[in-house]
Design a protein around this nucleic acid. Structure first.
Length: 430
RNA sequence: GUGGCUGUGGCGAAGUGGUUAACGCACCGGAUUGUGGCUCCGGCACUCGUGGGUUCAAGUCCCAUCAGCCACCCCA
């Protein structure tokens, strides 16, 4: 269909862009305050970046990537997430060679091929941050706290932070084995998906949504119980730091994130107000991703927050301004030969003073012009430029809310209007 | 990728096989000659997502296709 955007994509129309601007401003401000600098990577990468980075066994790579071959025969993929590309850039430009930790943020479109539904698009936007080169719990806590701070600044209510630690390559095998042993006797009762997870990635059985699987795994060993000393200490410290910062969280031993590269801290933020796709953001530590992509052992930690889902939540919670933004201070109506030229000049003069001015562009009747001035633009003042007035070097200044009007010399108009609008502004400020 | 529901003008929405496709909002115009927000009047769908088919006759039935919504999987 020529006249509709591709499935799962959306035009962001003027009535929506203002909300995006708001979010983008908060992002820029927040990141500046927290010491993160923006990085902009291409929206597509060599497919390898995601296969090796995100992980071949993940759903994202197995069935959700937009892959294509370019005319030069290169295998490319539209980025499904922002971490792997950021790591790639880190390596390419050897950003890790400078002062550490490296703290960067990104904001932009991501692509995943899935069936669209509420809160799920094929092209969606994420705001994410990454910290490279530090393993301490303070980094984890800062990243998490920053995500919550972001939501707080936008006024979000009723969101929940879920927290877990999924261990490292040292402690995971132990857990895996214990889990398989525990589940083995009940293997036949699990759902199809979980049966296949049993060997591939048994950890994921823990957060299966099927009721019977939840029951079966209810008392199953969780990752937290098998953490090695280092991971355990790290996790404890993260929790202490969050407490110290006044960030509330819920421990969720079943939280297992879908990307292969996570280690230790994993977290997710959910909103109850936006339907089944309740996760509005998430992240975690990934201490081996950089190596996996061929770099030196540089640890990382970050988050990715979904902007459409954020907007959905804000809309649901009544946090978005719904007032139309077309308000103008002054509307210039014109009638008769040659008046448009004067009106146009006047409009530009007024605009140069910083006023919001609009005029009629279509030779409409005065009646129609006034209607537009009051209905559409809610202009408190209308300047009427007519042949009669012009002959005397005057224009009519009409105060719309009072319904009064007077003739004033044309040359005085800019000054008069500027003063009037200033007065109104002062009055609004109280 | 799987399932359910839906698809009529810019938006919302009637229409359940039969002459010219209700209505509301929005938009545009008019109610005597240059004056608004209220009221009144008028205009605005050669056409019912698209393509086939059934029928004397289809927006109304059937099939396909595309899209939207919701859910599953998974995730933002």
């Amino acid at each position: 269909m020529l006249t509709s955007a591709p499935r799962g994509t959306k035009d962001i129309l003027p009535s929506q862009t203002r909300h995006w601007h708001l979010i983008e401003q908060v992002i820029a401000q927040l990141c500046q305050e927290y010491g993160y600098e923006e990085i902009r990577t291409p929206i597509f990468e060599h497919s390898e970046v995601f296969h090796r980075g995100v992980g071949d066994s993940t759903d994202i790579v197995q069935k959700e990537t937009y892959d294509f071959t370019d005319r030069g025969g290169r295998e490319l993929t539209l980025r499904p997430e922002g971490t792997a590309p950021t790591v790639r850039a880190l390596l390419e430009h050897k950003l890790y060679a400078g002062p550490q930790p490296v703290k960067v943020y990104y904001q932009g479109p991501m692509f995943r091929f899935g069936r669209p539904q509420k809160g799920r698009l094929r092209q969606f936007h994420q705001f994410g941050i990454e910290v490279f080169g530090a393993t301490t719990a303070q980094v984890d806590a800062e990243v998490i706290a920053m995500a919550m701070d972001f939501y707080r600044r936008l006024g979000l209510k009723d969101i929940e932070l879920l927290l877990n630690s999924i261990g490292c390559p040292q402690c995971r095998p132990g857990h895996r084995e214990a889990l398989q042993q525990f589940l083995e006797p009940q293997k036949e009762e699990m759902c199809q998906d979980c049966k296949s997870r049993f060997d591939k990635n048994p950890m994921r059985i823990l957060d299966c949504k099927e009721e019977k699987c939840q029951k079966l795994s209810h008392d199953a060993p969780t990752t937290v119980g098998y953490l090695c000393d280092d991971c355990n200490n790290h996790f404890t410290e993260v929790k202490e730091l969050l407490d110290a910062a006044g960030v509330e969280f819920t421990l969720d031993e079943r939280l297992v994130r879908g990307l292969d590269y996570y280690t230790r801290t994993a977290f997710e933020i959910i909103s109850k107000d936006i339907g089944a796709q309740s996760s509005i953001g998430g992240g975690g530590r990934y201490d081996h991703l950089v190596e996996k992509l061929g770099g030196p052992p540089v640890p990382g930690m970050g988050f990715g927050l979904g902007l459409e889902r954020l907007l959905l939540t804000m809309e649901e919670q009544g946090l978005l301004e719904t007032e139309k933004a077309e308000k103008r201070h002054i509307f210039i109506a014109s009638i008769g030969e040659g008046t448009k030229t004067v009106a146009f000049g006047l409009m530009q003069t007024l605009r140069r003073q910083g006023l919001f001015v609009e005029m009629d562009y279509q030779d409409r009747s005065l009646k129609a012009q006034l209607k537009t001035a009051s209905n559409r633009f809610q202009a408190p003042y209308v300047l009427i430029v007519g042949e009669g007035e012009l002959e005397k070097g005057e224009v009519t200044l009409r105060a719309m809310n009072k319904g009064t009007q007077e003739n004033i010399p044309l040359y005085e108009a800019p000054e008069r209007l500027y003063a009037l609008i200033q007065e109104d502004r002062d009055r609004e400020k109280g």
